[in-house]
Amino acid sequence: MQPRPIGLKILDVVTIIVLAISAYLALFFAPTEKVMGEVQRVFYFHIGTAWVGLLGFVIAAIAGIAYLVSKNMLWDRFEVAAVEVSTVFFFITIVLGSIWARPAWNTWWTWDPRLTTAAITELIYIAYFMLRQGIEEPEKRARFGAVYTLLGGISAPITFMVIRLFRTIHPVVIGSANGTQEKMSMSGDMKIAFFFALFAFTVIFVDMIWHRLRLSALEEKVESLKLNASM
């Protein structure tokens, strides 16, 4: 394996710096929210991880289609990297949301459309890894993985639309807390922390994808050597 390219080294340093700045902005710079208190500071990282989580799942579905069309293993590596990194980030999103919900709604969990859809999406991508684990041939693994990310990527938005029909009792809870109400009460400093978190997590996401791509390349090399050795 080649040593880390200079671009990745720089990106690693930048990632750590932007994460530190984003944490500083979220924890100290942004004013304490009056209604929620300190826990509202979790919101910046919640949004940041949610954004890259969803971005990764979209990228994965696109990479899946690209793989099926081109049969180029590079797309498969992209798909795995995007799904894996996003699954980790999305897990953080769900738990951070839950931690925020406990003092806000007095419960860790509600079966609200967003929460439920997030949980189901996470399960789809966990199933994705179980599917891949059960297949030995790399080429078949890539094909099946691509088909499944495609199915998952399309069913998730429909799930959201369907569940919204069930939970008409409290659609405002999340909508007002994260959307209109929060936006109205979000001061200038809060906006800075908010947008910087989005930017910071995008950088972190790219950095992690890059590392994961290199890991996949290494995996492929070892796998092909093993196949050669066993023949």
Binding site: V35, M36, G37, E38, V39, Q40, R41, V42, R102, P103
Partner: peptide, 8 residues
């Protein structure tokens, strides 16, 4: 504001 420091 309620004390939610622990949750943060």
């Amino acid at each position: 504001a309620p004390d939610t420091f622990g949750y943060m």
